[in-house]
Amino acid sequence: MPVMTYLDAIRQGIWEEMERDPSVFLLGEDIGDYGGAFKVTAGMLKKFGAERVIDTPISESAIVGAAVGAALMGMRPVAEMQFMDFISCGFDQIVNMAAKIHYRWGAKVPLVIRGPSGAGVHGGPFHSQSNEMWFVHTPGLKVVVPATAYDAKGLIKAAIRDDNPVLYFEHKFLYRRIKDEVPEGDYTVPIGQARVAREGTDIAVITYGAMVWTALEAAEQLAKEGVSLEVVDLRSLLPYDEQAVLATVRKCNKVILLHEGTRTGGMAGELAALLAEKAFEDLDGPIVRITAPDTPVPFSPPLEEFFLPNAKKVAEAARKLAAY
């Protein structure tokens, strides 16, 4: 099976959908000739033409609003945010226009908003945010967060084919750092389905995005110490895979909830509430959250390193929890 980067997998997924379905088109800043700030859309203008790969003015609200309009007319727009941080400039069109149309009057809005999120590259407070939870709190949207190249391709295809607005959060740290096997040809990864990234028996680590790799690194370390971590990659946050979350906790009876987003109102809080409701009897230890602290993402390398969860922090927490 071909091995490719996370970034190439996204590109291939979009490319194949563009070939498969003429209603799919792209819009965003610098995505044409330039191929996008991170080159996700490189080569697409040449292949698909300027009507399907649209360079826009710096107008995020209009990018999203126009995508909504086109979606209502039967197209499947894929809008790029140059950085997911800038999605706030299109916020109203997403959370009020796109998200509520189907509920209010039954029309479908099949659009995708995608772009790089996440920290680890010294981008500072405005190029590093993990702001997926802004949208997880908005019924009517779907939110996906691929961690592997395989899922990146499968989820972008699923997102494009979905009849609802889907926010597709790429992690910029993974773009060229992660490579894995991606089958040739068509496949999708269903939205709302988690996967077990590593089987284990002692502690469940439930996470998503770049932190999947952090959890796997910690699991590797702890395996040497005789503690078995099971790593569950949520892949979708809205809707999220309740059954998979409950299953891993019922199996391991201890749980660490891990993410790069900030703590209060983070995904871990939601999962902890679910576990308190539905898996109370299955827990043999306190629910442990490992998250970024409640601060903006700082720029300077030592600050950013302190801010981000890492394998060492996960391993330490896991050791403590194992001994509980």
Binding site: H122, S300, P301
Partner: peptide, 16 residues
Amino acid sequence: MGRANGPTRGRDNTLH
């Protein structure tokens, strides 16, 4: 350079 004694204390970069 992201130093502690910069005006943003290392929190923000460039000319912010």
